[in-house]
Amino acid sequence: MSAENQQLVNVVIDGKAIQAPPSLSVIQALWHAGYPRVKGVGCLEGVCGSCRVLVRREGQEKVGMELGCQTLVEEGMQVLFLVFPNPTHHHYELGEIKNSWDVQAEFHRIFPEANSCRHCGGCYSACPKNINVELGVKLAGEGRFREAGELFVECIMCNLCMTGCPEAIAPNHVGLFARRVTAYFHARPSNLIHRLELLRKGELEVDCNSPGSQPDNAAN
């Protein structure tokens, strides 16, 4: 079952014909074959969104968008790394929104194109996490930020929906906006507030030489 004893598969990654064991991810296969790869590599665990790849499997017309660290090589597979920057083209600071009653209006000021969704579904089909991106944008447009934000829980900000959007909506940033305003305006945990109050009044000091922090007392 080790890499060396497995039947090798033939793949083409960034134009390089490579033989690799099928237990390797696309990135690992590239390294395995001795090719350098720095750009488009990140956490290697599928949460950072760096390693976006185009993937075409043998005999298929379809070309998919996937994450290179999460995609195992298969016989006849073609892979191409998509390395490009996606600067956000929106600029806002939560502090500028003075009142939670204004959030929806502010949203449309910050993301004016969010209303121009043409419902092509490209964002949804490009999402490696299968998030219903299009619905999220719609909900945000209706001011249903908490609901919209919930859809983006697993969003890794890979920006594939943003590149895929013909109306330049930046759906992932819309989703993140929805999540951020929800926390900013609505998270008011009373246990936290109470603790902050005690700290402010100086009722919770820390003794740097406390009995509980001495080796002898703590040896249990």
């Binding site: 070309v63 092509c120 490209g122 490009a126 594939l160 590149t163």
Partner: peptide, 14 residues
Amino acid sequence: SCGQCPPCKTGTHY
């Protein structure tokens, strides 16, 4: 590109 097919939109963009 109309956006329906991500390989077209993203591919031509790239």
